[in-house]
Design a protein around this nucleic acid. Sequence first.
DNA 1: TCAAAAATAGTACTTCTGTTCTATAAATTA
DNA 2: TAATTTATAGAACAGAAGTACTATTTTTGA
Lengths: 203, 203
Amino acid sequence: MEILTEAQQQLYDWLVDYIRQHQHAPSIRQMMRAMNLKSPAPVQSRLEHLKAKGYIEWEEGQARTIRILHSEASGLPILGAIAAGGLVEPFTDVKEQLDLSGFFDRSNCFGLRVVGDSMIDDFITEGDVAIVQPIQEPSNLKNGTIVAARVEGHGTTLKRFYRSGEQVMLKPANPKYKPIEVSATQVQVQGVLVGVWRGYFHR
Amino acid sequence: MEILTEAQQQLYDWLVDYIRQHQHAPSIRQMMRAMNLKSPAPVQSRLEHLKAKGYIEWEEGQARTIRILHSEASGLPILGAIAAGGLVEPFTDVKEQLDLSGFFDRSNCFGLRVVGDSMIDDFITEGDVAIVQPIQEPSNLKNGTIVAARVEGHGTTLKRFYRSGEQVMLKPANPKYKPIEVSATQVQVQGVLVGVWRGYFHR
DNA sequence: TCAAAAATAGTACTTCTGTTCTATAAATTA
DNA sequence: TAATTTATAGAACAGAAGTACTATTTTTGA
């Protein structure tokens, strides 16, 4: 990502924060005041540069339509790692950025509430929300991919997908359950698993 | 939630969709055109009602500052349940709505990348992102709550929190690891676990 | 049925806002 | 150092946009 001047960075940071807080972009004059400027021209100049460098975009002539092009705006700061047994670095700066909002908002993903324990060995458990992205061509699915698939006579389930020739195996992640082996024609892949969300409500 | 008239519902639906697509609200006149109206007044009227009924809000006098107050806008539709072993209903309508964006955007949560396997029995595994909400008063934590806590000499870890008197136990969800038992003064609770995210990148 | 609420059209007004232009100072880069 | 880019101020403009008002029709709900 192209580097920014200090003034541009300052405006960009403020902008990202403003949008995060207000859910909409500020006007140029609001930015002007926030930057302690006495004219809209400098703001405009910085915005042009931010746009040229690929940081933002907007609808020309329309008020408050600036969009942040990178995911940091809607994302969650990942402050560090947290340990199992041992210690980890104290979290100070932002190490990564987790983009959850933008992860599926634009695409056409959907969620499925997980029932049962057939994927327990993959750490997917009852109550989790499986986030599934529909696919167009189930033909080039990689073996081992976790999919939501509908099998004639079995309903829709979440399983690992394996294919050899015309034979398809849907393998649960739990030794309690047997793999489903059927011909490819009997399987309808609804989508692939792109994420799992689990919410905790204790406290 | 208070019921809407057909005209209000129509505008609301369009509005939610527009904001989802554009990342910013439309102007009143844009809504006017979209609703096939010839005057801004009807739109204004509907917006007032939507506001009165708690569906939206906006910054008075400022262009394109409408906010959707419910999570559906930023949420993910949950189309149904998906089975472990057995079948589930075919997903048709939206059963629930998963609000991930709004879940922490406003609050001050942060993510921590999980390292190790000490929470494996709670189905939290290496690479997951633990979403943690800072707390002010660690005193009224419910026993069993999963927290990110810093213990003198142990670094920061993710564990279940139990307290009896002045003694605190931090219990891993893995028999391989022993609980940490120390006095309350030695424990600094960084926050409670509110969610776990796991992204899959296969395909 | 009847009254109240809502929807609609039309108009007008003031403010907001993006944009443009000129000119100068500062900072950066070759 | 010299040249280019960037930052800044100031002013001005045209169109966009929220808002207010009146009046009429339609719909809703008691």
